[in-house]
């Protein structure tokens, strides 16, 4: 590096140090003056959301419904992820399925290098919804087996056979079947038509 570059770097360092010092000092000052700290790290309602650079991205409870958190400008994911141009669903959550399908990310299949990787199972199962109008559900093994192994679902959650399980939407909403994951670790149940994709034939 040229000596000028060094000088520049040292200058930058000094500026950063001064800024950091002044900020800390100001906060200390404010606290000493009895000003109430607006953020209490021990209070879950006052969680801090940091971005990848460690800067404050937002505050608030993470237990609130997505919509409320999102309205308040927060997200489940760090702000950094939100701003990276990742595809989002209509609730502003990162659409992981789209990322995989578009080939944008390629996560390691396992932390254990020696573990054999099974290719995703490309079998769709149509699950008929009861009633005369609501669209049927196409259950895609592909995206699920990309993230999960068979044992995550078979046989603990689902018997291995089309129509072999007494699934119902009422129970899904109660957190059973697909509701074991959707609304928790996978896209939310409120996004009805992401599962209900096959229109009933005769009636509408």
């Amino acid at each position: 590096m040229k000596p000028t570059t060094y000088k520049y770097l040292i200058f930058l360092f000094c500026v950063t140090a001064i800024v950091a010092f002044t900020t800390t000092w100001q906060i200390k000052e404010a606290q000493a003056a009895g000003a109430k700290p607006t953020l209490d790290p021990s209070d879950p309602k006052s969680s801090l959301y940091l971005d990848s650079r460690g800067k404050l991205a937002g505050t608030g409870s993470s237990s609130k419904p997505v919509s409320e958190a999102f309205k308040a400008g927060q997200g489940w994911h760090p702000q950094a992820l939100q701003s990276e141009g990742l595809p989002k669903d209509r609730y502003g959550l990162v659409d992981w399925a789209k990322l995989v399908n578009d080939g944008s990310i390629e996560p390691l299949h396992s932390l254990d290098e020696d573990e054999d990787e099974l290719p995703p199972l490309d079998v769709d199962v149509v699950i008929h919804s009861k009633g005369d109008y609501v669209k049927d559900v196409k259950y895609p093994h592909q995206i699920h087996t990309y993230w999960l192994s068979c044992e995550n679902c078979h046989p603990a959650i689902f018997e291995m056979g089309a129509g072999a399980n007494p699934i119902s939407m009422v129970e899904i909403a109660e957190g059973k079947w697909c509701g074991r994951c959707h609304g928790k670790v996978a896209f939310p149940l409120a996004d009805c038509n992401r599962c209900h994709t096959i229109p009933k034939k005769a009636k509408r």
């Binding site: 419904p65 997505v66 919509s67 609730y91 939407m169 009422v170 899904i172 909403a173 609304g183 939310p188 149940l189 409120a190 009805c192």
Partner: peptide, 12 residues
Amino acid sequence: HDSTVAFPMYQC
């Protein structure tokens, strides 16, 4: 009732 304006529809 789509969880943005009012409660979502999975609350049958």
